[in-house]
């Protein structure tokens, strides 16, 4: 996978994804390794995303690489009107690999076409965020021992949530059964469902959580955003209908784990945090191992 860009999750084959997950496991066992000594990683955040940036920088630091970059474009030459192409070409003189987050859809694909060094997409607008998908897959495999034949429930905003779309598509390679819980106006788009149908997999749709929770091996919660609703009253009603609490978890399977891409608002009440089924903070930790695996394999040292 040396020099291979990661722009969308499907850029990597199932075998390559497995290799990354295996490598991430190795970094979880031994997180500090001085294998990227002398390498420079650029983190270009044209829009702020503290969580993702810190995770990448932590990954780079634990492998001995140096990190350069900016945290939002307001303080950089981008604000003076520099084109994305010029920024990428300039930075590629200083770095061996570029991690970028950008508010425009398709920006990462374009950057990978002009860049002489490999690009990792850390989010391009509403389009792709493949490292999130990989860390979700890692968390699922780690907690269930496999990615095959699982019952996965997604709850909340399934229409606009790109993490849900990418993970759903990635899981269609693993004979997943999908349980889709959302208000009618935020259902999974048909183009994503098409991918499920093409692989002859099953999906079930619900408007309330109970039944899906009973069946699930993985309960993937998402945030419902206010700006998706034209009617504020409707938002309040919907928001409160999809809150996970301790009582709801009483009917869950023993092996079930709760995932969430974070940050959460109120969709998981804090009383759940202490429950052994709550996995979302560990999930965020797993992001560092996945990003170590990516940096090491794309830079060709693993």
């Amino acid at each position: 996978m040396k020099n291979k860009n990661l722009i969308a999750i499907y850029d990597y084959t199932r075998e390559e994804q497995t290799r990354l997950l295996d490598l991430a496991e190795e970094f979880e066992r031994e997180p500090v390794q001085n294998i990227l000594n002398g390498y420079v990683v650029a983190t270009l955040f044209f829009e702020p995303s503290t969580r993702t940036r810190l995770s990448f920088e932590s990954a780079a630091n634990r492998l001995g690489a140096r990190v350069i970059g900016f945290t939002d474009s307001a303080s950089s030459s981008v604000k003076k009107g520099e084109s994305l192409k010029d920024t990428i070409l300039t930075v590629s003189n200083y770095a061996d690999i570029i991690v970028m987050r950008h508010p425009r859809d398709g920006s990462a694909r374009y950057a990978s076409e002009v860049s002489p060094v490999p690009i990792i997409n850390a989010g391009d607008g509403a389009n792709q965020h493949p490292t999130q998908t990989l860390l979700d897959m890692y968390s699922i495999r780690k907690t269930q021992g496999t990615l095959e034949n699982l019952q996965v429930a997604f709850v909340g905003d399934l229409k606009y949530g790109r993490t849900v779309h990418s993970l759903t598509m990635a899981l269609t390679n693993y004979k997943t059964t999908f349980h889709l819980v959302s208000p009618g106006e935020l259902k999974l788009p048909s183009y994503v469902k098409t991918h499920i149908k093409e692989k002859d997999l099953k999906y079930h749709q619900y408007t309330n959580m109970d039944e899906a929770i009973r069946k699930a091996d993985i309960l993937y919660m998402t945030r419902i955003q206010k700006e998706r609703f034209s009617d504020p009253i409707e938002y309040e009603r919907v928001k409160n209908a999809y809150i996970l609490n301790k009582e709801l978890l009483e009917n869950a399977k023993e092996n079930m784990k709760v995932l969430h891409p974070l940050p959460r608002v109120n969709e998981i009440s804090e009383e759940v945090d202490a429950n052994p089924m709550a996995y979302y903070f560990r999930q965020a930790e797993n992001g560092v191992y996945i990003r170590q695996a990516l940096l090491a394999s794309i830079l060709g040292v693993k």
Binding site: S83, L84, K85, R104, D105, G106, S107, R109, D124, A126
Partner: peptide, 12 residues
């Protein structure tokens, strides 16, 4: 068609 697409915002 997407106004937020990079092709509508840079010379691509």
């Amino acid at each position: 068609v997407n106004p937020n697409c990079i092709t509508n915002n840079e010379q691509v």
